[in-house]
Amino acid sequence: MSSVNTAMVEKYRNNFLKEVSDNVEEGEWVRMCMQCGVCSGSCPLGPHWEHPPQELFMMIRANKREEVLSSTSMWMCTSCYNCMVRCPRELPITHIMHGLAHYAKRLGLAPKEQPTNKFSQMFWNNLVQTGRVNELKLGLALYFMNGFSEGIKMSMKMRPIGQGMFFTGRMAPMEILGGHGVKDQKGFHAMLKKAEELEAARVGAHV
């Protein structure tokens, strides 16, 4: 577990609602939920998640910190905004879901095997290398995420699409060798570093 996480536990003790309020994007809205359930009833991911939004909010109030932050549920949000437009308390639920996911990730509590989480990490890793997303590498990394044989199977399955993209010039095979990037890669990495420092300082201030 990350040191930030330990610090947060220490700081907020049994007041997870306050922790969420202070640290999660739009988290101050969680307190306003009145448990009507219209969000979960409106969510297209209904059959898939373990905890619907209002249940996550209830768990936050019940101090179920571990369970909430390690949950896969908020990672499933597809940003359809159905919940948000229907919420009678106008909670920005979509944003809260992403905020929770982000916070969990930052604390190192996000479920490692959750596909969205995994993909997001891959996307990030891919992006930070050159400052541009290498779609070929990202795609292949995605296919081979669950092992070599799975990767082959997936690649074969996707072959017609790949061929189509190749022939219409939408995919450059040579990108596999590294691909293009932003002009000032050094500057780009410096910017990222600075951003990380700023973020750490901000979180540190909260801790």
């Binding site: 609602l17 306050k18 309020s21 307190r31 306003m32 009145m34 448990q35 209830m58 109030r61 019940a62």
Partner: peptide, 25 residues
């Protein structure tokens, strides 16, 4: 059942939530 009817009642309930009073059913 949280019973705060009428125009004022629901405002007061919301204000309680806004002040971080925790409501558990």
């Amino acid at each position: 059942d949280l019973r705060t009817p009428g125009a004022g009642g629901e405002n007061f309930y919301r204000s309680g939530q806004d002040q971080c009073v925790t409501f558990l059913k």
